[in-house]
Structures are given as C-alpha cells and as structure tokens.
Simulated scan of single mutants.
Amino acid sequence: ARHRFHVPVYSRVLIRDPADFSLLPYGQQGLLGFVSPYISSSPAHAVVMSDLATLHPGASCGCGLTSDWFELHGRAATTAGRSCAMAAAELMGSH
C-alpha cells in the first residue's frame, strides 16, 4: 500500500557492510543480500547484490504487513558492471 519492498516469506534480507561484509543493523545502508530460509543447516542460496539498501522493521511501514522492508539507494559500483562472458572475452583477447 505504501510502495515499499517487503521481504517475502521465502527469503531473508541482510544488509552487509561493503568494507568487510559484516551484518549491519536496521537503518544502516550497505550491500543488499538475500538468503533462503528453507534449510537451517546452510543456505540454499545466498546472494549479495551490487545494490545499496537499508533494511527497516516491518512495523515501521504502517501498511499492515509485518515483514521487514528495504529501500533501494542505487548501485554500489563506481563503474559499469560486466558479465562473466564479457570478462572471459577480455581475458581471451583476440584468440
């Protein structure tokens, strides 16, 4: 209702410090990460994005949803991103 990114039940959101990847608390800006909660012994997936975001408690939204929500601030990189294929092509040169 308030156009915020609430975390779905099939994922957990973590905000990581770009310098050392430590976990940041609510209200701190850092790298956006998603983790699957399905397996408790190890994550089925853990993805750290190149987006800067801030995590907020669900109750602070006021829309009635109780799950945490995050706001995006933009890309963390200072240069354009490259895919694995682009990096491989550069390494191979003209071969």
Rank of each mutant, 00 (worst) to 15 (best):
H95G: 13
R75Q: 13
A1Y: 09
E90T: 10
E71M: 07
H3F: 07
R2G: 09
R75L: 12
L14Q: 11
H95P: 06
I39R: 05
C84T: 15
H45Y: 13
P57D: 09
P43Y: 04
V9G: 08
R75N: 08
A77M: 01
R75P: 09
V9S: 13
C63L: 06
H73A: 06
T66K: 15
A53R: 03
V7C: 01
A87M: 13
Y26E: 01
S42K: 04
L65D: 00
R12W: 11
L24N: 01
Y10D: 12
T78W: 05
Y38R: 09
Y26D: 02
S50T: 13
C84S: 15
F21K: 12
Y38T: 08
L32Q: 01
F21S: 12
T66I: 04
A77G: 04
R82P: 09
P8C: 11
M86I: 10
M86D: 14
T78S: 14
E71T: 11
R2F: 14
G27W: 08
S94H: 15
L23G: 05
H73G: 01
A1N: 13
Y10I: 07
A88F: 09
G64R: 02
T78D: 14
A1D: 11
G58V: 03
E90L: 14
A19T: 10
G30T: 00
V13R: 00
M92D: 13
V9N: 11
V47G: 03
D51Y: 06
A19K: 11
G33L: 01
H73F: 07
Q28H: 14
P25C: 10
T66V: 07
S40C: 07
F34R: 14
M92T: 10
P8K: 10
S83G: 15
H73W: 14
T79D: 10
L32G: 02
G30Y: 00
G93K: 10
C63S: 04
P43C: 00
F70R: 06
C63N: 06
L24Y: 01
H6A: 05
L52R: 09
L91C: 15
G33I: 00
V35G: 03
H3P: 07
L23T: 12
I39Q: 10
R2Q: 09
D17R: 02
G30F: 01
L52A: 01
F34P: 07
C84K: 15
P57E: 11
D17C: 03
L72N: 01
S42L: 05
H73N: 06
I15A: 03
Y38K: 05
S83L: 08
G30M: 00
I39H: 06
M49D: 10
V35F: 00
A80L: 09
V48A: 02
C61L: 02
F34N: 05
A44S: 06
S42Y: 03
Q28V: 09
F34A: 14
L55K: 07
A19P: 04
R82V: 13
R82A: 14
H3D: 15
L14K: 12
L24K: 01
A44R: 03
A88C: 13
M92R: 15
P8N: 04
R16T: 01
L23D: 09
A77K: 03
T66P: 02
R12T: 12
D17A: 04
D51G: 05
I39D: 11
G93Y: 14
T78N: 06
M49Q: 06
S22A: 13
Q29I: 03
